[in-house]
Amino acid sequence: MSDITWEEPFCAEGANCFRLGTDSEGNAYIAVAGQEDRPLVDTKEALRALIREIKAGRADHLL
């Protein structure tokens, strides 16, 4: 796995924490904080699209 630069954990309601990361090869990573050795991996553009859709409320039905 490439060297991943992780952002600080984002925690919603104190217990549900995740981290976003990127590498020099153009990949984006999402992991549960503390489980960075098992991330989901996709392109940076795919991560941008996911975040845009969540912000637009298109994933609210999943909650």
Rank of each mutant, 00 (worst) to 15 (best):
39 P>C: 11
27 N>I: 05
13 E>L: 11
26 G>D: 11
29 Y>T: 00
11 C>N: 12
58 R>N: 15
18 F>Q: 04
13 E>N: 09
48 R>S: 14
4 I>R: 00
59 A>C: 11
5 T>S: 09
23 D>Y: 00
37 D>S: 15
11 C>V: 13
33 A>R: 12
44 K>Q: 15
51 I>F: 10
60 D>I: 10
20 L>I: 15
47 L>G: 05
8 E>Q: 13
12 A>R: 07
12 A>Y: 07
9 P>K: 06
47 L>F: 06
32 V>C: 04
20 L>N: 04
28 A>K: 03
26 G>L: 09
2 S>W: 00
19 R>I: 11
5 T>Y: 05
10 F>C: 14
59 A>L: 14
16 N>H: 04
54 I>N: 10
21 G>Y: 03
12 A>C: 09
18 F>W: 11
5 T>Q: 12
38 R>W: 05
54 I>D: 09
45 E>G: 09
3 D>G: 01
31 A>C: 09
38 R>L: 11
63 L>N: 12
22 T>C: 02
36 E>D: 13
60 D>C: 09
4 I>F: 02
17 C>P: 06
46 A>G: 13
32 V>E: 12
61 H>D: 14
25 E>N: 04
8 E>L: 10
14 G>S: 08
32 V>Y: 06
27 N>W: 05
52 R>F: 13
44 K>G: 08
4 I>C: 03
35 Q>C: 13
50 L>A: 08
35 Q>I: 09
4 I>L: 05
24 S>F: 01
19 R>E: 10
35 Q>V: 12
53 E>G: 08
7 E>S: 14
39 P>K: 02
49 A>Q: 15
8 E>R: 12
61 H>F: 15
40 L>P: 08
45 E>P: 05
45 E>Y: 10
3 D>V: 04
18 F>H: 07
26 G>H: 07
40 L>V: 15
55 K>W: 02
28 A>L: 05
34 G>K: 08
16 N>K: 04
14 G>T: 05
43 T>Y: 14
29 Y>N: 01
20 L>D: 00
16 N>A: 07
21 G>N: 02
46 A>V: 12
50 L>K: 02
28 A>R: 00
46 A>F: 03
27 N>M: 09
6 W>P: 03
57 G>C: 07
57 G>A: 08
28 A>G: 11
33 A>C: 12
13 E>Y: 07
21 G>H: 01
24 S>Y: 01
60 D>T: 12
31 A>Y: 03
29 Y>A: 02
46 A>R: 10
43 T>N: 14
25 E>H: 03
37 D>L: 09
39 P>F: 01
35 Q>P: 03
55 K>R: 14
56 A>H: 12
26 G>P: 13
25 E>V: 00
38 R>G: 01
63 L>C: 08
51 I>Y: 04
55 K>N: 13
18 F>C: 08
43 T>V: 13
13 E>W: 07
47 L>A: 13
48 R>G: 05
47 L>N: 03
10 F>Y: 12
34 G>E: 09
33 A>M: 04
14 G>K: 05
62 L>P: 01
25 E>S: 03
22 T>W: 04
46 A>W: 01
4 I>D: 01
